[in-house]
Amino acid sequence: MTTTGSMTLFELPMGQEGTVSGAPGASDERTEEQEIALRLFEIGFIPGERVRVVARGYPGGDPLAVRVGDTMFALRRFEAERVLVTPACEAAR
């Protein structure tokens, strides 16, 4: 967890709601990282959106079933680690 109370989506405990607080930034250079960031943005992982980890794969928690807004998605760990979230209890402060 970072000092601001944000954590990655992968670190968010199962069942706890959070709010997307950040994602990888954009740049002019088209890299694999930017492709992942664009995909996450296009499916709804934008700052302010509600998220909840609904299920985790076994073993190791990969992949994750994540509800973003009213839609469910499966994300791999490397994708979930690129989305910053603020847990609901932190967002209320």
Results as ranks from 00 to 15, higher is better:
Met1Val: 11
Met1Thr: 14
Thr2His: 13
Thr2Gln: 12
Thr4Lys: 14
Ser6Arg: 14
Met7Cys: 10
Met7Tyr: 05
Thr8Trp: 07
Thr8Ser: 15
Leu9Pro: 02
Phe10Ile: 07
Phe10Ala: 11
Phe10Ser: 08
Glu11Trp: 05
Glu11Gln: 11
Glu11Ala: 09
Glu11Pro: 05
Leu12Asn: 04
Leu12Ser: 03
Pro13Trp: 05
Met14Pro: 01
Met14Lys: 11
Gly15Asn: 09
Gly15Leu: 08
Gly15His: 11
Gly15Trp: 07
Glu17Cys: 12
Gly18Ile: 02
Gly18Arg: 10
Gly18Leu: 02
Val20Ser: 00
Ser21Arg: 10
Ser21Leu: 08
Gly22Pro: 00
Ala23Gly: 14
Ala23Tyr: 02
Pro24Arg: 12
Pro24Asp: 09
Pro24Glu: 04
Gly25Glu: 11
Gly25Thr: 09
Ala26Val: 07
Asp28Gly: 13
Glu29Phe: 12
Glu29His: 11
Arg30Lys: 08
Arg30Asn: 07
Arg30Gln: 08
Glu32Gly: 13
Glu33Pro: 00
Glu33Asn: 06
Glu33Asp: 13
Gln34Met: 07
Gln34Cys: 02
Gln34Asp: 01
Glu35Tyr: 07
Ala37Lys: 07
Ala37Met: 08
Arg39Gly: 03
Arg39Met: 07
Phe41Trp: 11
Glu42Leu: 10
Glu42Ser: 09
Ile43Lys: 10
Ile43Gln: 07
Gly44Arg: 05
Phe45Gly: 02
Phe45Val: 00
Ile46Asn: 13
Pro47Leu: 01
Pro47Cys: 03
Gly48Gln: 06
Glu49Tyr: 03
Glu49Ala: 15
Glu49Val: 15
Arg50Leu: 04
Val51Leu: 02
Arg52Trp: 06
Arg52Phe: 06
Val54Ile: 13
Val54Phe: 02
Ala55Ile: 04
Arg56Pro: 00
Arg56Ser: 00
Gly57Asn: 01
Gly57Val: 01
Gly57Thr: 01
Tyr58Phe: 13
Tyr58Met: 06
Tyr58Glu: 08
Pro59Ser: 03
Pro59Cys: 06
Gly60Ser: 12
Gly60Arg: 13
Asp62Met: 06
Pro63Ser: 00
Leu64Trp: 03
Ala65Thr: 06
Val68Met: 02
Val68Asn: 04
Asp70Ile: 05
Asp70His: 12
Asp70Glu: 11
Thr71Lys: 15
Met72Ala: 10
Phe73Cys: 11
Phe73Gln: 13
Phe73Val: 15
Ala74His: 09
Ala74Tyr: 11
Ala74Ser: 11
Ala74Arg: 06
Leu75Phe: 09
Arg76Thr: 11
Arg76Trp: 05
Arg76Glu: 03
Arg77Val: 04
Arg77Leu: 04
Arg77Met: 02
Glu79Cys: 04
Ala80Arg: 00
Ala80Trp: 01
Glu81Met: 06
Glu81Cys: 08
Arg82Asp: 03
Arg82Gly: 05
Arg82Lys: 14
Val83Gln: 02
Val83Leu: 00
Val83Trp: 01
Leu84Thr: 13
Leu84Cys: 06
Val85Thr: 05
Thr86Leu: 15
Thr86Ala: 15
Thr86Glu: 15
Pro87Gln: 04
Pro87Val: 09
Ala88Glu: 15
Cys89Trp: 12
Cys89Arg: 13
Glu90Cys: 14
Glu90Gln: 15
Glu90His: 14
Ala92Ile: 13
Ala92Trp: 03
Arg93Val: 13
